[in-house]
């Protein structure tokens, strides 16, 4: 296994972890009131999107090299 393959695997694993954690946090905070919490929800949603992008890139489905 070379360095490039390791980078791809690490990106997929970390990306999946980020998506799971972000969605779990989003579910837990879904009903919390307050302006700051509404912003946090948007941020967590975008964080989950970022995790999806990183995982898909690591898996080779998207991205140009």
């Amino acid at each position: 296994m070379n360095g490039l393959e390791i980078e791809h695997i690490v990106a997929v694993v970390l990306g999946v972890i980020v998506v799971c954690v972000a969605l779990f946090a989003l579910r837990n905070d879904w009903k919390t009131p307050g302006l700051d919490n509404q912003v946090f929800k948007i941020m967590l949603g975008l964080l989950a999107l970022g995790g999806v992008l990183a995982a898909l890139t690591g898996a080779g489905f998207i991205g140009k090299s």
Binding site: E7, V18, A25, A54, T57, G58, S65
Partner: peptide
């Protein structure tokens, strides 16, 4: 040359992971 995509993806996942840890720090 375009920047290396695999390294970019790892770096991105590291930064996104830090967002998750920061959220749980506050919680």
């Amino acid at each position: 040359t375009r920047p290396a995509i695999a390294l970019g993806a790892v770096n991105a996942a590291i930064l996104f992971g830090s967002g998750a840890t920061m959220h749980y720090a506050l919680e």
